[in-house]
Design a protein around this nucleic acid. Structure first.
Lengths: 215, 215
DNA sequence: GTCTATAACTCGATAGAC
DNA sequence: GTCTATCGAGTTATAGAC
């Protein structure tokens, strides 16, 4: 554990969230993970919650920064799927999505954590939205689905899959595989061209689904 | 609060999970929510964890039973989407998905809760899988996507969206709306007929996605 | 089965020495 | 800025009266 005491505590908070969950992430377990004295939590951050908030923000910023270059390079849906699978595997090992999921769970009953959890999610959704806009922008799909909403749904699904994985690894893998098949399917339709796009759009009108522009 | 002490405690446990989260669901808060003495938690269930496990199982069984008749009546993707939206709204108010999400979060670091959380999720995924098999069985989509995996992904997404909603209601609504658009889109492609199905399948081969039968 | 009382422990947070 | 020591509250769980 290197760096200032503040950064040790932030790293320890993330580690403690992953290892003990939101219910077990106390000043003592965090300080133990950071290798510092327990009282320093309160000297540097005032309360445990404030430390968790700082850890959430720092963790999300660091992870998004790590992937920003890769995300900026994505040009096709297939590249996006590949990066998504890699991101899922890497972050699972690193425990960053797990920490965010724990903070999100804690925020449900603890309003002080909510803004930080929302901000941590927003960092991811904003980045995903940028990529989706670029990848889907010129295709029929971009006009048929609310891309900002889709980015939020993808983030939510990542969190849900992470929690699923904690109780059923094989099940979560199957779920992820099915989502990849589905995404590839949508991508395939997307690339069939304007004729298929018109047919789909016409069918959507008949079945009563409102495209994003229509309200 | 009616019924036996056991059932009061089970109901109190679910209420406490929703109100205080997994971190605040103690024997005392649960007993207070149930309106019974704290020591009865240990007399009837031995430990708090065992009570949470029983509550998770009972809650999931009760909710799935409530919806089974409705789910059995679903014949089209559109009906499924409508029921999904209604289910989401009703369960949000009832807090049942919220309780499952909290138990799932707790299970990440507490292996004793994991089997119960997995079983609670499995009750939902099994039911969703049955419906998906019936609705998608005769369509091209059924052959292109692993339906069992898709059912698990839908359950995971529900959990993720529930947690998202706790910190950003508008964002979660946008995410849910985008998923509905996407599902309607997939349904529309599904109903375009065998020509579109063949075109999509051929495109999927070229881009290297393996359909469920192929492995 | 239900209650009170309590043991043994952990929690957040603070005071004060250094 | 970091440490020890500690307070008061909350925690699981049990003993024993009823």
């Amino acid at each position: 554990m290197t760096g200032s005491t503040r950064s040790k505590l932030v790293a320890g908070a993330l580690a403690s969230l992953v290892e003990h969950g939101i219910a077990g992430a106390s000043a003592r377990t965090i300080a133990a993970a950071a290798g510092v004295n327990q009282a320093l939590v309160f000297y540097h951050f005032g309360t445990v919650d404030e430390l968790l908030v700082a850890a959430c923000r720092h963790g999300a910023e660091q992870r998004v920064a790590t992937y920003r270059e890769r995300l900026d390079g994505v040009r096709t849906v297939r590249e996006l799927l590949d990066l998504g699978r890699e991101l899922h595997t890497t972050e699972r090992a690193g425990g960053h999505v797990a920490a965010l999921a724990q903070l999100l769970a804690g925020a449900q009953a603890h309003p002080r954590l909510a803004p930080a959890a929302a901000a941590g999610l927003a960092l991811w959704t904003d980045e995903i939205e940028k990529v989706l806009k670029r990848v889907l922008g010129g295709t029929p799909l971009g006009g048929l689905v609310d891309v900002a909403g889709l980015a939020k749904a993808i983030s939510a699904a990542f969190v849900g899959l992470q929690l699923y994985e904690g109780v059923d690894v094989a099940g979560a893998d199957a779920a992820f595989g099915a989502l990849e098949q589905l995404a590839a399917l949508v991508a395939a339709v997307d690339e069939l061209g304007p004729v298929a796009g018109r047919a789909v759009r016409s069918h959507l009108r008949r079945t009563g689904v409102t495209p994003p522009q229509g309200g």
